[in-house]
């Protein structure tokens, strides 16, 4: 099975990288961009009997490893 997961900073955590990217957008002439928040994106191949089992497994992995729950949220975007 193939899955995708994204990890993003919680809204109240400062993201200086995102801010720098937002400023760079402005420098390029894209003044319309008012905010950028940077995150991480994972493509994962795994063995699981069905999507429900995969979801459970991926949730555990995201909790324990892919994200640090003090500052980050995660979302399983797709399982197929």
């Amino acid at each position: 099975m193939k899955a995708t997961i994204c990890v993003t900073l919680k809204p109240d955590v400062l993201d200086p990288q995102g801010q720098a990217i937002q400023k760079a957008c402005g420098t390029l002439g894209y003044g319309q961009v008012s905010q950028v928040r940077q995150g991480k994106f994972f493509e994962i191949d795994l063995d699981a009997p069905n999507p429900e089992a995969a979801k459970r497994l991926l949730g555990e992995i995201a909790e324990k490893l892919l994200s640090n729950r003090i500052i980050e949220n995660y979302r399983i975007l797709s399982i197929e």
């Binding site: 955590v13 400062l14 200086p16 990288q17 720098a20 640090n68 003090i70 500052i71």
Partner: peptide
């Protein structure tokens, strides 16, 4: 911090 032996986390410096 990542091991849970201390609370919290160290983030990227404010001014990068």
């Amino acid at each position: 911090c990542e091991s849970g032996l201390l609370p919290g986390i160290l983030l990227r410096n404010r001014k990068l």
